[in-house]
Design a protein around this nucleic acid. Structure first.
Lengths: 196, 196
DNA sequence: CAACGTTAGTGAACATTGTTCAATAATGGT
DNA sequence: ACCATTATTGAACAATGTTCACTAACGTTG
């Protein structure tokens, strides 16, 4: 019995994910088609479906890489003062998302959206919330720091989600980074006022 | 020379918009196809394209109706105390969006997304921000009440946007209404603490 | 070393999509 | 009664994701 040949199988998979990222950045969510992707890595649609379950799966794989990168950046934040740390975390988040807006956008907007998220995705987000909970807890709020951290992430995410699809201007002319700062400062002010 | 016949032209247009709304509510963004819509109103795809420029235009028309309905509900809010008024406005917004999540969702998520928004859309949103600015101004904040109103709308919108596509649980188990309340209360607390 | 079972890769085919357009049918003014 | 005008049709086109019988190539086994 013969074994599977796996010479450049993994390599092709990796190249495909990289190519998908490029297609997204160049042409937006609609540019990530099975045929375009196949052509990018000099193969055929059939092979793409041999490597991935569906085009949505390709997108999700691109996104996985992005989340890993984000985790690394978040861990690189050095500030120890709670306020400065929260501001720095927000800055990292905003910068990261806007840099990769094409990828991020495709996940929510395009024709390749998927309804369910795998466990590793949930775990990544959970980890992110954990990093926010820490400095929030250091501010000694009245309420559960975890819940407040969730609310803070939600605020900042809402801002960048709109900015990523170029629709922030429907509501305001303020810049995403300024808005994120304001959200963080407001949370801190409310905690210090004894409201939370 | 013969005139255009416009007997049931407008009626058909109206029925079509209504049918589109139904399709969205029953089968999500993907269910709003040209052929399905044509069948719903007992006509053909060609006629749909005679009434509307594109399928995106159909979706935008459905959304226009929704925004008009929202404006009516917002104007019906009777509370005069600033805090209670802001809370009531947030409640109306959350309830409305979640009730019509299918329509709202299609605008951002599905394959029928459109890149630009017409003027009437911007005007509606501008009006909405105006209604929020009023009670915010009554709280005598240090900063520009309009900018704060924009930030508040952004907070609440971020929450319902995620909830509408059933992805709020990626971040938190808290309920949309509770989160909206928290956002309003935090804004008020920050203003009262003299932070904004 | 040769043969064969297993597997990766292919590309044609299918169903659906939005969208267009020549042809047809119907209408209301002259 | 006629006919210019216009709405409606439905076939056609291009592009999409996805499937699958087929081919080619490989590594194990005798």
């Amino acid at each position: 019995m013969a074994r599977p040949r796996q010479y450049d199988h993994d390599a092709l998979r990796t190249r495909t994910i990289e190519a998908a990222k490029l297609l997204l950045e160049e042409g937006g969510p609609a540019a990530l088609t099975a045929r375009a992707l196949a052509k990018s890595v000099k193969t055929t649609p059939g092979t793409i479906y041999n490597l991935f379950d569906s085009m949505s799966a390709v997108l999700q794989e691109v996104n996985r890489q992005a989340l890993v990168d984000l985790a690394i950046l978040v861990d690189g934040v050095g500030q120890t003062d709670p306020r400065e740390r929260l501001l720095a975390l927000a800055e990292v988040y905003v910068t990261f998302m806007l840099d990769r807006r094409a990828v991020w956008r495709a996940l929510f907007e395009g024709p390749r959206i998927s309804s369910t998220f795998p466990d590793w995705y949930l775990a990544q987000i959970d980890g992110l919330i954990g990093r926010i909970t820490q400095p929030v807890a250091a501010l000694k709020p009245k309420g559960d720091p975890r819940l407040l951290a969730e609310q803070l992430l939600l605020s900042v995410h809402g801002i960048v989600a709109l900015a990523a699809i170029d629709r922030l201007d429907l509501i305001t002319m303020q810049k995403p980074m300024d808005l994120a700062h304001a959200a963080v400062e407001r949370m801190i002010a409310a905690i210090r006022a004894g409201a939370e």
